[in-house]
Nucleic acid binder design. Sequence first.
DNA 1: ATGAAAGCGCTAACAA
DNA 2: TTGTTAGCGCTTTCAT
Lengths: 335, 335
Amino acid sequence: MTIYDISEKAGVSIATVSRVLNGSNNVSEKTKKKVLDVINQYEYTPNAFARGLGLNTMKTIGIMCADSSDPYLAKAIYYIEQKLRANGYDSILCCTGYDLDTKASSMNLLITKKVDGIILVGSNFIYEKEDDNKYILDAAGQVPVMLLNAAMDAPNVYSIVSDDFTSMYDATMEMIRSGVEDILYFYNSTSYSGKKKLAGYRAAMEEKGLLTNGSFLQLYQGSHEDIPAMADQLLKLHAKGITFHGVIAADDSLALGALKYAREMKLRIPEDLAIIGYNNSMLVNCCDPELTSIDNKLETLCQHLITTLMGVLGGSEMPKKTVFSGELVKRGTTK
Amino acid sequence: MTIYDISEKAGVSIATVSRVLNGSNNVSEKTKKKVLDVINQYEYTPNAFARGLGLNTMKTIGIMCADSSDPYLAKAIYYIEQKLRANGYDSILCCTGYDLDTKASSMNLLITKKVDGIILVGSNFIYEKEDDNKYILDAAGQVPVMLLNAAMDAPNVYSIVSDDFTSMYDATMEMIRSGVEDILYFYNSTSYSGKKKLAGYRAAMEEKGLLTNGSFLQLYQGSHEDIPAMADQLLKLHAKGITFHGVIAADDSLALGALKYAREMKLRIPEDLAIIGYNNSMLVNCCDPELTSIDNKLETLCQHLITTLMGVLGGSEMPKKTVFSGELVKRGTTK
DNA sequence: ATGAAAGCGCTAACAA
DNA sequence: TTGTTAGCGCTTTCAT
């Protein structure tokens, strides 16, 4: 069923059918009704390719994320996808993994598919070396690129970030204030936001003159699902004679690792070990006691991202970078 | 940059360029190289719409899932998306929510976008009333529809399921054998697979003559993230004087709810309360003790789903329904 | 208010 | 091996 068939059955030209389809008001009510009737009768829907060919847009946004099974990223995708749909856009999802080459080729693929914009979910898309970010610049040459939880200053690139530095700084300060001074920083990523978080911790510790021991920075490099491995890493640290009474984790799952460590060491929480996580994800009340965690307002970030993207696509001038503040949600793992 | 530009610059016809693009072997090495050089020089990529218009396919599969932030579904999407890409297909993701109307309209949207196939992730897409499943039949009239963890006997619909009945039956039997007879069944879904699980529990309990008390079936209807609410429900049950020493949960998060209940009641696990979850998700080692859970082999299911889909798209005859067995993974919450 | 016709960029059947 | 050409289904000027 094509526009020709409809035009024939309705006794009008294809142009008129097209006008009806696109809500032009230069059609008399009478013919409009006539055409609409035929369209409904035959359940005709226009061919998206043909339309795309002419308009060169398919109202589709490409979403890239390294690993959609990461609960935090999954949640972000969920919000983004919903809000896009509410704005009449579809989304093509690409789970790229953490490899640069794969990311770049996924990006090309999306461009090839003629997406109207690209959203990079998570800070791992921004690299240290400027050269490694070229793939983003290339893409931005074609369509707007939105960064969630990452920032990059380049034309046609828009960044929506949570103020990780301040969140982490405040959380660290709070823990110090509660009387804990030997605080371990447990992290798993050196991405854009990873660095901000770390810097927040450092700044607070330094300010209080507590940043003495290098092994207080613990980088975990295993799977984000492998809680036992995280606990193991802390157990080994303890075995080496390093003691700490607080853990600030860059991610809730790492905090759960710390919690597991505490249980295996028979430590009381929060008296012997205070723990703060990050993301305020569903994991926070999977455990006992429930996890104190930093809420970085994911839904707000996503909402703003989509609003900005819609603005850009609509031709409006939009802010290149937007920063939201996080919030420490206190639960049982801190005093 | 179009195929015409390239043909001109390379001094050949557009047909030749097209042949090079599509890897036809009816092109001499010499001209092939000539064309390829120009293509690379100008970084030309073909217009997907135009190609789609002619071929009427975009090598894209629609994925529908109710809620991509559900860890289990997120994981499934992750596997599916990866395996599709490995087969040269892209995916359009639709998070539909649990409402029938939304599901139906998402379905139409995907059809409109000319996807080559549709994958329904999760059993909540199949309804009790036959009429409510009409939207699936309609879609199957256009493209193959794949069901993950659900089954439906209809032309062009293919089902890949885990044998939930047997898994649940075996798990229940195992718990009974371990000496627990008052086993609560804690569930949150009456979907296709939800019913199978329940039936498995029932069959085992009935066989052992233990199915006496109706309130042993507890349906939880809140958010899958709200562990405290799940615990609450069990606490209320206890307050009503209903006692149980085992919980079999239809989902790992429900099992965590039971675990929380046990902690609040100061019950020893597994001595006072044995717990079995379902899905063997990352949640199983978020808690203490770690959760015994049923592994339903999600990756295998997804792999098989894609293999089947590729077969169907390739024109091969494929099995309409495939059943895999689950496996009970014993951890600390059972004897 | 309506229609005729020229693209949009590509594939594939047909000719040479 | 290569080129010519007719679609694919729609949007959008430009006439009328």
